[in-house]
């Protein structure tokens, strides 16, 4: 698969997430769209990681170099980064949902238009 396919796919997912954030008023849905954007980025990172891995192994094979552990490991940083993004997303969701629940308790709505009360 050409890498551009994956790039376009994740861009499309990311844009859908942005459209969701712009068009919805429900705080929970907006939150979910942010998760969708994070996932689009994750997908891109994994695709790049795989691409680098493939390129490194191929280059080593072309130059008849021995394939070492380091070469096999190329690109793993991308996947570890995705892992950390997931960790942070989980932490973010717990706190974010707690805040939304608190907000619902106070104003009995999850409408972000009511949230401008925070300004005053």
């Amino acid at each position: 698969m050409p890498i551009t396919h994956y790039i376009i796919l994740s861009l499309a997912l990311f844009s859908i997430g942005i459209v969701g954030v712009l068009t919805r008023r429900n705080a929970i849905i907006i939150f979910m769209c942010i998760e969708l954007m994070l996932n689009a980025v994750n997908l891109l990172l994994v695709a790049f990681s795989k691409m680098h891995n493939y390129a490194a192994i191929k280059a080593a094979a072309d130059q008849k170099l021995p394939i070492t552990e380091a070469i096999l490991n190329t690109g793993s940083e991308g996947q570890i980064f995705v892992f950390f993004i997931m960790v942070v997303a989980a932490a973010e969701v717990t706190v974010g949902l707690a805040i939304i629940v608190m907000m619902y308790r106070n104003i009995h709505s999850v409408d972000v238009n009511f949230l401008n009360r925070l300004k005053h």
Binding site: I3, S49, S76
Partner: peptide, 17 residues
Amino acid sequence: STIEDVKGGDVGFIKRL
């Protein structure tokens, strides 16, 4: 740049990660 399945392309496998 393309992504192909290659032998030894196990970067996403659990042991390596």
